[in-house]
Amino acid sequence: MEPEILARLARVEARYIELNDEMTQPDVLSDHVRLTTLAREQTELGELVGRYREFLQAEKALEESKAMLREENDPELREMAQMDIEELSARMEAIGAEVRVLLLPRDPNDEKNVIIEIRQGEGGDEAALFSADVYRMYQRYAETRGWKTELMSLSENGIGGFKEVIFEVQGQGAWSRLKYEGGVHRVQRVPATEARGRIHTSTITVAVLPEVEETAVEIKQEDYRIDVYRSGGHGGQGVNTTDSAVRIVYKGGTPDEIVVVCQDTRSQIKNRESALNVLRARLYAREQEKRQKELGESRLAQVGSGERAEKMRTYNYPQDRITDHRIGQNISNLPVVLDGALDRLIDALVTYDNAERLKALGMGA
């Protein structure tokens, strides 16, 4: 590892030891809030300190093996020393790669729940049907991670497709994995509604928003209105007999209105709460986008126009292939992926993202 990274790790270890000493002081032990804060900081540094100490141990063992290789005449011992050198060098290189990633600034949203919005783009009913497929893919993926999904709003097309579906994924680390799913998803297949068997290309848009605490985004009452009306969703006759659906129209002093509709439950209060959560998440995302542009960090918005030419991932049914265009990676066995096996794709995106961020910080391997 580079000297500047080792120096940084030494400072982290010093802080870790300092925190340990602080937490044994009587005045800290009697202050629950302060003790919790210090313990949290130490926990966050723990993995990095552990890797640093592993590296130092391996470095010491490597020097000992090199000394043995220089000084020993016994062929068998020299061979053992050479094997140790190769093994320890590989271990140190692996630890170095892990440390670089651990040193990257943490995304403050990584442990948050997420709100996902899926909308049909071009392709009519076929796009709506694919929206339903992708919704089920995320549901099943959430199940494999032990996360919970909660439907917030659904607009159907009458033949099993979704014009729009909004849902929440609740679970530790949901944002850290699903944040890579935002963008235009393109599907190429023969639609179930196509009698002649021609391959069609359709698009859907996916927006992934971190859940935002109520105190993080201020929403003034004068900036929005709430409409209530009779739900016409999939919930059956029981839903349709009450004015439970909620529409929030937010103006907020900007030329573009934000409209959020939630109608999935019979409770007007619950739908209102869900709609406000979605609005809060959209406003937060908009502010983050504005801040990134001001800092010169150009990044395309997650939701484009839904044009066929705009794509971040293509699902090609005839060729049983999924292509992620951001990293140029293809994987096969499309039905398994649509059944929730997304980790292979997401892992590749995490690796690529980390490598790009390391390059930007001048810490490339």
Rank of each mutant, 00 (worst) to 15 (best):
E2K: 10
R8Y: 03
A14S: 14
P26N: 14
V33H: 14
L38C: 13
T43R: 01
G50R: 08
R51F: 04
R51S: 06
Y52L: 03
L56S: 06
K66N: 04
M68S: 11
D74C: 12
P75W: 04
E76I: 05
E76V: 13
R78T: 09
R78F: 01
R78M: 12
E79P: 09
I85C: 00
E87I: 00
S89L: 04
I95R: 06
I95M: 06
E98I: 15
L103F: 07
L103R: 04
L104C: 01
N109E: 15
E111D: 15
V114N: 12
I115E: 03
E117N: 09
Q120Y: 09
G123D: 03
G124N: 04
D125R: 05
A128P: 02
L129G: 09
A132F: 06
A132R: 02
D133K: 01
M137Y: 00
M137V: 03
G146E: 03
W147D: 08
L154S: 12
N157H: 05
F162V: 14
G171K: 06
Q172W: 08
W175G: 12
E181R: 03
V184M: 04
Q188A: 13
T193C: 05
G197T: 10
H200R: 11
A207I: 03
L209W: 02
E214L: 12
A216G: 11
E218V: 10
R225N: 03
Y229T: 13
S231Y: 00
V239T: 00
V239I: 01
N240P: 05
T241M: 10
T242F: 08
A245Q: 08
A245V: 13
I248D: 01
Y250A: 07
G252H: 14
V261D: 11
D264H: 13
R266V: 09
Q268K: 12
I269S: 09
S274T: 15
S274E: 04
V278Q: 00
L279M: 01
L279C: 13
L279S: 01
A281L: 02
E289Y: 12
Q292Y: 03
Q292A: 08
E307P: 10
R308C: 14
K311N: 06
M312P: 02
N316P: 10
N316R: 05
R326H: 02
I327C: 01
I327V: 14
N330I: 12
I331M: 02
V337L: 05
L338V: 07
R344L: 05
I346E: 07
D347Y: 08
Y352M: 02
A360I: 12
G364A: 13
